[in-house]
């Protein structure tokens, strides 16, 4: 039995995971189905949402924020962050704009999460 904390939402439910049989992982303590999915994924292939910032040229502020459109494999986090270094977006940028396509071949994009109007 492994104890873990669901990180899918701020409720932070305490999960008990029985992974003695990897093809039939049993999860208790979750408040919603996402908790069960999280525990199973965490046992098999841990994934994380990655958020960071990207420089904006000619905007009202210097940086916009970005997130991965879906969670990516945990071991890819730092390679993914590297793709954001050295890129600059031109203002205006809009929520939902793609900043980097297909990050590290994961099929997941970095998308903008904050509107930055032109200065």
């Amino acid at each position: 039995m492994k104890e873990m904390i669901c990180i899918c939402c701020p409720m932070g439910c305490h999960l008990q995971v029985d992974a003695s049989d990897l093809s039939n992982i049993k999860v208790t303590g979750n408040t919603c189905p996402r908790g069960e999915k999280y525990a199973k994924d965490e046992m098999v292939c841990p994934k994380r949402m990655v958020t960071s910032v990207v420089r904006v040229n000619g905007g009202t502020i210097n940086m916009t924020s970005v997130k991965t459109s879906e969670s990516i494999e945990k071991k890819l986090i730092f390679d993914a962050l590297d793709t954001l270094k050295g890129i600059t977006l031109d203002a205006p940028v809009h929520e939902g704009d793609v900043a980097v396509k297909n990050v590290c071949g994961s099929g997941v994009d970095f998308v903008v999460t904050k509107n930055v109007p032109k200065k």
Partner: peptide, 25 residues
């Protein structure tokens, strides 16, 4: 929220997980 760029906001209000700027937006 404009500076809280990480995700984890809004699951209770919007039933989806948003970043701070998106929630404020």
């Amino acid at each position: 929220l404009n500076q809280c760029i990480h995700n984890g906001f809004g699951l209770h209000t919007f039933k989806e997980e948003l970043t701070g700027p998106e929630y404020a937006g």
